[in-house]
Design a protein around this nucleic acid. Structure first.
Lengths: 223, 223
DNA sequence: ATCATTTAGATTGTTGACAATTGAAATGTC
DNA sequence: GACATTTCAATTGTCAACAATCTAAATGAT
C-alpha cells in the first residue's frame, strides 16, 4: 500500500484493488465472488468489502443477485455491442463539445496525443497504439469539462478494457487507425463540431462489429 | 409499504424512499444529511442507510465528502448544462437505434405516447405534456434494448426531475413541443436513423439554454 | 487582541456478531 | 425409482458497538 493511498478510505482501496483484478483477469469473467473469502484475503471486514462490491456493481464490472452472490461480469456479444456503441456515442459527444471551444491547451494536448500514436504506429507496436488510442479519447473527454460525461466515459472505458484480452488476438490496421484519429483531430481543431461528431461516432465501428461477430461465434460454439 | 416491496431488501426500500424525497424536494438541494438522524427516522440501521446513500451518490442525487457528510446535490448552471446535453445525447442515440429496427411493437408504443402528448397539449395541461414527454423518451430508450443506455438514461432522467420545480415556473410552447416530437416519431418510424438522431439531439436545446441562463442569473444574484 | 495549539464533541469509517434467505442434500411418499 | 417435502449448511442482509477523523470551541503564548 503506497503512502498516497493511506489518505483514501479502506473502501476505496478495496475497490481499486478489485477493479484491477477484474480488468487484469485475475478474477475471471463469470466467476463467483464469496464475500468472506475476499474480505479475509484483503484483510478487511465483510461490510467494507460489500461497499466496494456495490461500487463495482454500479460500474458494471460485477453483477449482484439478491441473497445469492456477486459474480464477475461475463462478456456476451450483446455486452460488446453495447459497450462499443456507448463508447462511440460518448466520444462523439466529447469531440463535438471540444470542437466548440478550441483553446491553446486543447491544441497542445490533442497534438501530443496524436504524436504519441504516430510514433507507436511507425514502430508497429500494437499495444502502444491501443494505449495511445485510450489516452487520445480520454484527453478529449477531459478537455470537454463535462463531469457527467467524464463519469459515464470512465465506466465504459473500464468495461472496454475487459475486452482487451480478446481483441488482442485480432490484428489491426495501425496506420488506418492513425489516419482516422488524425482526421478527427483536424476536425476538432478546425472547430468543425458536426464533422468531429460524425468521425468519432463511426471511427471504430468496424472493429466493434468484428468483436461482436467473434463473440457470437464463440457463444454458438459453446452452446 | 406495498406487498411487492416486501420482496425487496431494506437497502432498496430506503434507496427508493430517499430518491423520492430528494426529487420531490422534501430533502432540499444542498441540505446536509445526518446518517443517525435519517436511519432512526426510517427505522433502519446506519449501515443499511449508508448503502442507500452510496447508491444515491452514484446516481448523482447526493454528494459525499470523506469523513465529512452527505449533502443533497445542489443545482448549478453547469449542472443544468451537463444534464441537458447528456440527456439529448442519450435520447439521440436511442432514437437512432430504434429507427434501425422498427417493429410493430415500436409503432404501437411510440404512436400511443404521441397520442397522449397530443391530448395533453390540446387540453393545454403543461404538467401532462411534460409527463408525456418523459414517457415518450423513456419508451424509445426501453425499445432500444440497450441495457447500458437504459441505465445511463435512468440516472440522467432522475437528475432532470430535480430541475422540474424550477422549470415549472417557465411557460412552454406546448404545441411546438408536440410538433417536434411528432417529427421525431415520423423520422423513427420511417427508419431515418440519421434524421431521428439530429432531431432528438436538438429537440429541447432552447429550453435547456433558457434553464442554464436562468440559473446563471440566480447564481450571480446570490453572490 | 491575534494567532497557533489543544481539546472536546459530533460524525463518519470499520468491525464482528446475529437474522433472514437460498440451494441442495436428506428424507419420506407413492 | 420418481417426485414432493423437509432439513441444514452456506451465504447474504442487517444490526449495534468501536475506532478514526473532522469541526469548532476552549486554551494559551506572544
Amino acid at each position: 500500500m503506497t503512502q498516497a493511498a493511506v489518505l483514501q478510505t479502506l473502501n476505496d482501496q478495496a475497490t481499486t484493488i478489485l477493479r484491477e483484478r477484474i480488468i487484469s483477469g485475475a478474477l475471471p469473467p463469470g466467476s463467483r465472488v464469496l464475500e468472506i473469502e475476499l474480505a479475509e484475503e484483503l484483510g478487511i471486514s465483510r461490510g467494507t468489502l460489500r461497499a466496494a462490491l456495490q461500487q463495482l456493481s454500479f460500474e458494471g464490472l460485477v453483477v449482484q443477485k439478491r441473497f445469492r452472490s456477486t459474480f464477475v461480469a461475463s462478456l456476451t456479444a450483446q455486452d460488446a455491442y453495447e459497450v462499443y456503441t456507448m463508447r462511440n456515442t460518448l466520444e462523439a459527444m466529447a469531440a463535438r463539445i471540444v470542437a466548440g471551444r478550441v483553446t491553446d491547451r486543447v491544441r497542445t494536448e490533442i497534438s501530443q496525443a496524436i504524436a504519441d500514436m504516430r510514433s507507436a504506429a511507425k514502430a508497429k507496436n500494437r499495444v502502444a497504439v491501443v494505449n495511445a488510442d485510450y489516452r487520445f479519447h480520454r484527453c478529449i473527454v477531459d478537455l470537454s469539462g463535462h463531469a457527467r460525461l467524464q463519469a459515464a466515459y470512465g465506466l465504459i472505458e473500464a468495461q472496454t478494457r475487459l475486452f482487451l484480452r480478446i481483441t488482442s488476438t485480432l490484428d489491426y490496421d495501425l496506420t488506418g487507425i492513425l489516419q482516422v484519429h488524425q482526421a478527427l483531430m483536424e476536425a476538432i481543431l478546425s472547430g468543425d463540431g458536426e464533422g468531429a461528431e460524425l468521425l468519432a461516432r463511426d471511427h471504430n465501428t468496424p472493429d466493434g462489429a468484428r468483436m461482436v461477430e467473434m463473440l457470437k461465434q464463440m457463444e454458438e460454439a459453446c452452446s
